[in-house]
Nucleic acid binder design. Structure first.
Length: 392
DNA sequence: TGTTGTGATTTGCCCACATCTACGT
DNA sequence: CAACGTAGATGTGGGCAAATCACAA
């Protein structure tokens, strides 16, 4: 959505995009704080590769929306670097945009492009060179070979749970920096709050195992009733594999969150992004372990004060393996996502369907109905030899 | 262009009770 | 250790109210 907005906006604003202070030809892509100069990729590479001091100049990307101010935040959902003003404008536009995750952009020092790119930049002076340099710049933030959209979605999706009822707040709050909505990031805070991230994962893992055992028992005892799909060996193995990936990811996330606390300071709330929408919330989780682990138990509201003022941030720098693992996990889950409600106990369903209702709500059975029911079940038992409610 | 009103759609809650789980005896 | 009893938790579906969305004036 924002991409469309931005592409439109960028296209519209291209005419007034700031030009490079050095070459006065190309559009600037970075802002050098030390030089207080807006530079295009080529000039940036050339100038900051001159010597060691220059290479340590802190630079930030230019806002992709207005292209006139240094970017302050990176919108993960849109993969867009935005200045404070554009960020406020864009992400206060609608509730969906408010849920985008944004992280402060760290200034970058050192060579952004690597020797090859610099050499390239020196040799080529045309648009193509600039384009290549920009690509290089993009790649600097991480391995972009993986589908970025998927990855961003995966990242936000894996990290955060949406809050189903933020209605009360979002009429006044505009998301990340425009209000305080504590509950919305409790899930995240939990990661920060956990002193031992390994334990954190262990808890999840144990929970998963309990769930697995629970389902296993259910299948054993009530296999006739249950309609929960039983995993084949291959699927179990896959689930186990996914667990391993998740374990890696949780470790990674934990570290990232902890470090982020020191790195940044947010005063506002962090809205949830994407993915586990209210549709998902209403869905009974299927038995893939990767699904179960996504739902974090909510932290009691009282604990929030402990973290007020502390920051929460998306991990911005992951090793290629971790990123790949995360995306893989996301894609895997995306494939196995189920939006249909899963009936775990058909017998309960059967009873629910036969139960008397008043305006949709279950009502107490009258004595007559109880008698009829008893007669029916007696008959059923006599005919079938048992009283099990037929499964569906 | 921004505001207001209206209709359509979506979401979450409520209810009773059989079933399930985790205990203790 | 197995069998039994008990208390508390869980899950089930239809209707409704509230929230949200889309569109027009």
């Amino acid at each position: 959505m924002l991409k469309e907005d931005q592409s439109n906006g960028t296209a519209a604003n291209n005419n007034c995009a700031r030009v490079c202070d050095t070459c006065r030809a190309a559009a600037c892509t970075v802002f050098c704080r030390a030089d207080s100069a807006y530079l295009c990729s080529g000039c940036d590479a050339t100038i900051h590769a001159v010597n060691c001091v220059a290479s340590h100049h802190e630079r930030v990307r230019v806002c992709e929306a207005c292209e006139r101010a240094p970017a302050a935040f990176l919108c993960k959902a849109d993969s867009a670097s935005l200045c404070t003003a554009c960020d406020a404008d864009i992400h206060s536009a609608n509730p969906l945009a408010r849920r985008h995750q944004r992280v402060p952009i760290l200034p970058i020092s050192g060579s952004l492009y690597g020797p090859q790119a610099i050499e390239h930049g020196r040799m080529k002076l045309g648009r193509s060179a600039t384009a290549e340099m920009e690509d290089g710049f993009m790649n600097q933030e991480g391995d972009e070979t993986i589908d970025e959209e998927d990855e961003d979605e995966a990242a936000s999706w894996l990290l955060l749970n949406p809050v189903k009822n933020n209605n009360n707040n979002n009429t006044k709050n505009n998301g990340l920096f425009f209000g305080v909505d504590v509950d919305e990031y409790l899930d995240l805070v939990e990661y920060n709050s956990c002193a031992d991230q390994n334990n954190q994962f262990t808890d999840h893992h144990q929970q998963e195992q309990q769930q697995e055992q629970h389902y296993g028992v259910a299948h054993k005892n009530y296999g006739g009733d249950s309609v929960v799909p039983v995993h084949q060996y291959g699927e179990v193995a896959k689930a186990h594999q996914m667990q391993q990936l998740q374990k890696q990811s949780f470790h990674q996330l934990g570290l990232e969150y902890e470090s982020s606390k020191a790195a940044y300071s947010y005063n506002g709330s962090l809205s949830h992004s994407v993915s586990v929408s209210s549709m998902d919330v209403g869905v009974v989780p299927n038995s893939t372990m990767s699904d179960i682990s996504i739902s974090h138990p909510r932290t009691p509201t009282g604990t929030v004060d402990l973290f007020s003022g502390s920051s929460i941030q998306m991990p911005t720098q992951l090793s290629p393996m971790d990123r790949e693992a995360r995306v893989l996990r996301y894609r895997e889950k995306k494939k196995t996502r189920k939006f249909e409600k899963t009936i775990r106990y058909a017998s309960r369903k059967a009873y629910a369907e036969t139960r008397p209702r008043i305006k949709g709500r279950f009502a107490k059975r009258t004595e007559m109905e109880v008698e009829v029911d008893q007669m029916f079940s007696t008959t059923l038992m006599a005919e079938n030899g048992y009283g099990i409610v037929p499964s569906f």
